[in-house]
Design a protein around this nucleic acid. Structure first.
Lengths: 117, 117
DNA sequence: ATGCTATATTAGAGTATTCGAATGTTAAAT
DNA sequence: ATTTAACATTCGAATACTCTAATATAGCAT
């Protein structure tokens, strides 16, 4: 049972483990939005947003409502918004390290082109 | 800047997005533990636990202290424990669906061996 | 019926995670 | 100086994610 619970939590975290999906959840926090609006605000391809929405739907992080041509997405439970709020608190508290972390990841991606022959 | 913050949050969620790593964080919540104790409690191979600990260390989710032969791990910030607590709340609230979700994932993994020829 | 708009799904290539097995490393004990 | 105990790291195969591009569906308008 404990193991099930952990797999469940891991699944939710997995769903949140992508910058675009975090952006989606944050934008939905104040209220529902259509896919089009989300694309606008986030500035990503429609197909891409749609795929990320599918991930969030599969984990029941978001729910939908259809109105004519378009589909409105909303957060299923504000608790998840609160989780992100806690993360914001965490981020601010450790801002300096956070920046370092990101810088390092950046470099790790930048420096690769060259290999020692 | 917002984008950086989201990548950071995503990184933390990524770190938490595995049942074993969740188990680690939960076990560390009351206080520090050695790697050996963690292996015992979780019931996984030492190398495996060590790899997961490395993931958590890289994201600064945990910190270490060395004492002679062994290494004590502790949660770096109780806020992350609180995040898990929120998740528990969430799990209990949606227990039924959670179970369904897990069952479906289970089936998706079980049924595959056969293919329609 | 045709076309247009909003959204979803599929396919395939590139990349990243995860595991077990093998190998390193450090500190204490003999 | 060896050996043992406690951890960490590396390797390689299997699996899972993520992106772009292409295709599909559903509702509305003409």
């Amino acid at each position: 049972m404990l193991e099930s619970m952990r797999r469940f939590k891991a699944g939710i975290f997995q769903a949140l483990a992508h910058p675009t999906r975090i952006a989606i959840v944050e934008h939905l926090r104040p209220g529902e939005l259509t896919v089009g609006k989300l694309c606008e605000k986030i500035g990503a391809e429609q197909a891409n947003i749609s795929q990320h929405l599918a991930v969030l739907r599969n984990k029941h992080v978001v729910e939908t409502r259809k109105e004519g041509n378009q589909i409105f997405y909303r957060l299923r439970d504000p608790v998840l918004g609160e989780v992100l709020e806690k993360m914001r608190e965490y981020f601010l508290k450790h801002m300096n390290e956070a920046m370092d972390l990101l810088r390092h990841e950046q470099e790790a991606n930048d420096v690769e082109p060259e290999a020692t022959p």
